[in-house]
Design a protein around this nucleic acid. Structure first.
Lengths: 135, 135
DNA sequence: ATATATCTTTGTAATGATTATAACTTTGTA
DNA sequence: TACAAAGTTATAATCATTACAAAGATATAT
């Protein structure tokens, strides 16, 4: 689907900058930080401001088009895949992996008296395969 | 159990400051921020430095005596309860609740090729009971 | 088509959490 | 007691994020 139409589904006006950010997020599923997104797009859009990246992602998150991950204590990370999946962060290299092959039950929103649950975030941490081979 | 002995189990030397921080965390299960811990203890320990609170909690987390929660994007929050439980953060008031009555299966560490999983963090967000009644 | 209002982007400055550093204090040990 | 190691403190530096105001782009009504 066109990114234009995708953004409109979330009630987001598809400006050039917003489209570029969403395009990047959908192409590079690396859970990038603001800085990584800015560094990639900046050469293609010389007048681009980092503030715009902040504004854009805050809007995306507000509208539910993108997930803001809390898995990295240092920087916010963003994920355009809003389907049920978990994340794994390697304590050694810091890379964030997607974990798709988990039981869907893990993402169920429990029915609890006094809590209106909107979102579920499931995060694991440890050592990834590439780092385990080393040191 | 004495807090002294509890800290020693994690290979942490029980200084006055460290004992006070752990005591606070075990008494007030509010998932406090560094600032909240400092503000509470400071009147009782006039020479206390906020850097010490940072040092202490980084040590506690390293040694596995305390969990650092990523549920709050603004500040790190800490939890001395290291048993399996989830958290719920109210989008309205910001309060972080403990959720104990969930299936233990949710906290299982999945066996996945190429991932050595050490920790599991399960977080929910939405609107809490007190906030739902309002506005 | 033009004027006007609204929305979006931009650059700079401010804020605020966390870490680095170095001096000082306490603790443990010979 | 003297010395070394560990812990604490205060200050300064760093760095992610937000606030703000001006400039630019877009949409609407006349």
């Amino acid at each position: 689907m066109q990114i234009h139409h995708y953004l409109k589904q979330f009630d987001i006006k598809p400006s050039v900058q917003r489209t570029a950010v969403m395009d990047y997020l959908m192409s590079y599923k690396t859970h990038p930080t603001i800085d990584e997104i800015y560094s990639y797009l900046s050469p293609f859009m010389p007048t681009l401001s980092k503030t715009t990246i902040y504004n854009t992602l805050n809007l995306f998150v507000e509208k539910g088009a993108v997930l803001q991950l809390a898995i990295d204590e240092k920087n916010a990370r963003y994920d355009a895949d809003i389907s049920n999946h978990a994340h794994f962060k390697c304590k050694n290299c810091g890379k964030v992996y997607d974990l798709f092959d988990l039981k869907q039950e893990l993402f169920a929103k429990p029915m609890l008296e006094g809590f209106d649950i909107h979102t579920v975030e499931l995060s694991y941490s440890g050592i990834c395969g590439s780092c385990k081979g080393m040191n």
